[in-house]
């Protein structure tokens, strides 16, 4: 959620923050999941990106986490912040309490500490859902491009904005119970390609991909995805839409 009206910084001494981090190193047979507290002094404008890097630089060089763009664009740094999936890079510590917890995203394979293997799952999902425009033949690169209504292009981009951070899947109750569930990431992608006139696939084809209980019919509409999505994608609308289209094919 966007918070425009933030808590005013307290005057005087900076806060001493305690980050409680769920640590585990699967590569080490002796390691068991445990919480470890790190204390850092809060600085003005501090994000979890800054705080975690400071912890690694000054307290524990072995702490594992993933950041890439540190600007909320690449989707690498999703983790559970006080239990809720979110992008760590753009979470300001002033929006958190003096004590907060950081844990890796559930559902995905744990690499270590706060680092999870979203890439492997996403590659599998892309292959499973065949998330590319299916068109016949190669485009003629010398000719004028196909026209598209400006509104349609914008509508496609609206769904194309997904950064595959995994927050929606981590926020999804169904996915916690069904490891094969395609999640909002997958369903949103199908909605995106369904909207795209360049993709020649029909609803029948999409039914082949998502017409079961690991696909759209597995969704129980708990809307965790919709509520935690850092890009505010219209996931509820899209999943309901797909459900209507796919359900219609059953009759």
């Amino acid at each position: 959620m966007i918070r425009l009206f933030r808590k005013a910084p307290d005057s005087g001494r900076p806060r001493r923050l305690t980050a409680s981090v769920l640590r585990h190193n699967p590569a080490d047979p002796a390691s068991a999941p445990h919480w470890q507290d790190f204390v850092v002094e809060e600085a003005e404008g501090m994000t979890l990106f800054i705080a975690l890097n400071e912890i690694r630089a000054t307290q524990d060089p072995s702490l594992q986490f993933d950041f890439v763009c540190r600007a909320g664009i690449c989707g690498s740094c999703a983790m559970l912040i006080d239990g809720r999936p979110g992008l760590a890079c753009r979470t300001l510590t002033r929006d958190l309490g003096e004590r907060f917890t950081l844990a890796p995203l559930p559902f995905f394979e744990l690499i270590g500490d706060l680092s999870v293997n979203t890439g492997k799952w996403l590659r599998g999902t892309a292959e499973r859902l065949r998330t590319w425009v299916h068109a016949a033949g190669r485009p003629d690169l010398d000719a004028l491009e196909e026209r598209m209504a400006p509104e349609l292009a914008e509508a496609i981009y609206e769904l194309d904005r997904c950064i595959e951070c995994g927050c929606c899947v981590a926020g999804c109750g169904t996915a916690q119970m069904r490891p094969d569930f395609i999640g909002a990431i997958g369903l949103n992608k199908i909605a995106r390609f369904r909207l795209d006139p360049r993709d020649t696939r029909s609803d029948e084809d999409f039914y082949e991909l998502i017409g079961d209980d690991d696909g759209v019919f597995g969704c129980m509409s708990l809307l965790g995805c919709h509520d935690v999505c850092p890009k505010q994608l219209p996931l509820q609308t899209q999943i309901a839409f797909l459900r209507r289209r796919m359900a219609a094919l059953g009759f």
Partner: peptide, 18 residues
Amino acid sequence: RAYRAFAEHRERLHHGDT
């Protein structure tokens, strides 16, 4: 396993619809 996974999920997420 599924039961526990969901119970933990609900516990930490504090999300109304869940």
